[in-house]
Simulated scan of single mutants.
Amino acid sequence: MKITNLKLFHVQPRWLFLKVETDAGISGWGEPVVEGRARTVETAVQELRPLLIGADPGRIEHLWQQMYRGTFYRGGPVLLSAISGVEQALWDIKGKRLNVPVYELLGGACRDRVRMYGHLKPAATAADFPLSAMLEITDRRLSAGFTVMKYSIIPPIRPIDSLETVDRVVERFAAVRERVGRKVDVAIDFHGRVSPAMAPRLLDALAPYYPLFVEEPVLPENVEEMVRVARSTSIPIAAGERLFTRWGYRELIEKQAVAVVQPDLCHCGGIFEARKIAAMAEVYHMQTAPHNPLGPISLAACLQLDACIPNLLAQEHPGMPDRRDLGEGILKTPFAIGPDGCIPIPTGPGLGIEVNEDALAALAYDGGWDPPRLFFEDGSLADW
Rank of each mutant, 00 (worst) to 15 (best):
T288S: 06
V283H: 12
Q256N: 12
M320L: 15
G327E: 02
L313S: 06
A259W: 00
P334M: 03
C268G: 09
C266H: 06
I253M: 00
I330W: 06
I253E: 05
P236Y: 04
A307K: 12
N222Q: 11
T245M: 12
G295K: 11
L331S: 08
A230S: 15
A314Y: 10
N292R: 07
E241I: 14
N311P: 08
A274H: 10
L351H: 07
E282G: 12
K255S: 05
P263I: 14
P236H: 08
E221V: 03
L294Q: 14
Q256P: 02
L312V: 01
P310L: 07
I253N: 02
L243S: 05
C308M: 09
E282Q: 14
I337F: 00
P339C: 08
P334F: 05
P290H: 11
G295H: 03
W247D: 08
D322T: 05
I309L: 11
E241D: 13
R324S: 13
E241A: 12
E273C: 07
Q287P: 04
R323E: 08
L294K: 14
I337A: 02
R323D: 11
L313M: 12
I237N: 07
L212V: 03
W247V: 10
P296L: 13
G348Y: 04
M320D: 14
I337M: 00
V227F: 02
A307Q: 11
F244Q: 07
I271S: 06
I345M: 10
P344S: 10
P236W: 01
A289W: 12
D306T: 06
T347C: 09
A257H: 02
E273F: 00
Y249A: 08
L312G: 02
F244R: 14
G295V: 05
